[in-house]
Every structure is written in structure tokens, then in C-alpha cells.
Amino acid sequence: MKARIKPVYPIILLLLIVTSFHSSTAQTKITDYKVSFGTADYQGKNCLVLREFIKEGKKYYLTADPATLNTSILSSKELDKIVPYASYEQLAIHTNGTAYMKALTEAKDQSIPLQDAGITHGFPKEKGITLTIDLCPSHKGLDRNIFTSLTDAFRNIERPVPVALSLTGRFMLSHPDDITWLKNLVSSGQLNITWVNHTYNHHYDPSRPLSQNFLLERNTDLNFEVLALETLMIENGLLPSVFFRFPGLISDQQLVDRITAYGLIPIGSDAWLAKGQQAQPGSLVLIHGNGNEPVGVRDFINLLKSEDTAVHQKQWLLYDLRTAVP
């Protein structure tokens, strides 16, 4: 009787997916990626240094504009007067009063609850919302209907359409074609995506209470969850933002303090549509674009349709996360 051999197809398939993703979309491999705080001058303007890494033997930095919250990747040759700081606390002292630090302080002040810590509501000048779409790990692909509905609704109103995508590493690796499709929407001028750190793995155990789940699970390697995702993003042509969303919107004060110590601004939501929360002017609306939340997607598309007249009168707009926060 022949011995039965355990199939290895799932493992081979995963390796093929990862290999295909890197071979089809990856940029040059980067090394020595780490937190590095400081300030520097770029083209006559002050910028914040948040990370440093090596690419093709040269040093690069992930920087942020303290006024606009826009991030950039710049080489050491492009920056002048680099002043390193030993910690986030030192950076905070030297950036006090900037839009970046105001937003980060606002997020920390709203971080007591177990659920939904961080900034949950924006401050637009007119009626409208800030749309955030979570891409948690899923065997299903991207719900592209969300994005085509957006670009159709705002075709002659807002171009590119601003949207924040909370990205996980496992979704990136499982759905490389979807990431490429999104990048093409950006390069064609249809979307303006703010890429939000949503951790590499997004661990979840349905048998555990919330206070011991997601990033609160014991032995979670927070450094890996945050920095490995940023590394993967940069290697594949995505630009990390200064924003972070907790998996499941679950955290505690200690975890919030640890995340802000990376220089990241936590965001929550006051309108998770699939949970029946209604969008109000200025809401940070949350839906999932990973195929696992059809109710939330349906509700958002219905919201778009209900505001159609206001959209065409430019009285109901979508706001860029970087301008909507305090």
C-alpha cells in the first residue's frame, strides 16, 4: 500500500502569489529600514524625518511636511541641515504648534476608549465626508465597484478623487493585481490615495475578548507590524502616510502611546456604515473594500446616490484625510 503524501498545493500557491507580486510590482529592495527622527531642509522648506533606509547602497528618508502632512521619500543628497533627534518626544518639542503635531495631539487626547481611538471626525469647510476604506486580509479580492462608483460620481466635480486606504501586508501579498489596478487609477489621475498603515498581519482571534485581541494579543511584535508593512509598501511603489488605523479599531492607552511614538497619527471613525452608524458632515466614514462587507459598500453607494444633487452643486464633497484632520 502506497503511503499517502500530504498535498503541498496551498503552500506552493502562496509562494507563487508572493513571488508573482514582487516580480510584477516590486521596486528595488530596501534594507536597514528603521525609525529615525529629525528635521531637515528640502528646497528651502522645513520637513520632518520619520524613517531612514538603504536602497542601492544609498541612504533615503521618509519625510513629512509638518504643515500639509504630505510625505515624501528623499535621498540624503536632497536634504540639507539634517538635525537628528533621539526620540519622538524631542521631535514633538521641535514641531509644537504645527498642523502635524496638532493632529497627533488630538489623536492622543481621544485615545481612552478600548474601541475607536484617535481622530474620528474631520473639519471640512462645507458639507461632505472623508472616506476611509480598510483592506484587511481576505481571500476575496478588492471590491472595485466602490472605486468605479466614486470616479463616476465625482467625474466632473473632484479629480482626482481623494480617498484613504488602510492597507495590510497580507492583503497586498494576496491581491497583487488589485494593488496594481489601484496604482493605475492614481497614475491616470482618477484617484488620490492616502495609504494608511493598518499593520502587516492584522491578527484576529474570534475566540478572544477584545481586550486581548488584534494588536492587544500577547507577544505581538509591534515593530514588525508597523515597519515591515511600510517596507513592503515602499518596495512596491506605495508611499506610507503619517496615519495609522488600529485593526478592529481596538487599542488601549499604552498601545496608542506606542503607535504615536512611531510618529504615526491614529484615526478611527464615527461612521462605520456596516454597523448602522450614519455619516454626518465631517465624518470619517469607514467601509471595507476587501469583499467581506457588502452591507457597508451598499450603504455607501446609496449615500452617494442620495447626495447626487449636492455633489453636482459642489455642496457635498470628499475630503483628503490630510486636510480634514485638525
Rank of each mutant, 00 (worst) to 15 (best):
D152N: 15
R298A: 14
Y319E: 03
K59I: 11
L210A: 14
V297A: 11
L286Y: 02
N302M: 05
Y200M: 15
M1D: 12
F300K: 04
Q254P: 00
Y85K: 12
I112M: 01
I157R: 13
Q253V: 11
L91W: 04
H22F: 15
L50R: 12
I259H: 11
N46H: 07
R51Q: 07
E235L: 02
N302W: 01
W181E: 01
I267Q: 01
V8Y: 03
P281N: 12
L318G: 09
V311R: 15
D109C: 10
L69Y: 04
E56C: 04
I17M: 13
N201A: 11
P240Y: 10
V226F: 08
A271H: 06
H312M: 06
R4M: 12
V35Q: 08
I301Y: 06
G141S: 14
T220I: 15
M233D: 10
A261M: 10
S188I: 01
I301D: 03
I265T: 14
S188F: 04
K29H: 15
S188W: 04
D257H: 12
L255G: 06
T180V: 10
F154P: 10
I287L: 01
G268D: 00
P281K: 05
Y204Q: 10
N70D: 13
E230A: 07
D32A: 11
K127Q: 13
S241F: 05
H203F: 15
D270G: 02
I82T: 05
T95M: 08
G289T: 04
E106D: 13
L215Y: 03
G118P: 01
L79C: 05
Q277P: 02
Q313C: 04
T71Y: 02
R144Y: 09
H139I: 11
L222S: 02
I112R: 03
H202K: 10
A279G: 10
W316I: 06
N201R: 13
P10N: 09
K29G: 01
G268V: 07
V83P: 00
I54K: 10
L284G: 02
F147L: 13
Y61M: 04
D257Q: 13
N236I: 11
V8R: 11
L16M: 12
L165R: 13
T98D: 09
K183M: 09
N201K: 10
S174W: 07
L255P: 04
G141H: 12
L317K: 13
E126T: 15
A310N: 14
Y9C: 00
L227E: 07
R144M: 12
L232D: 08
V83N: 13
D257N: 15
L16W: 10
L222V: 07
G44C: 03
I112H: 03
T309C: 06
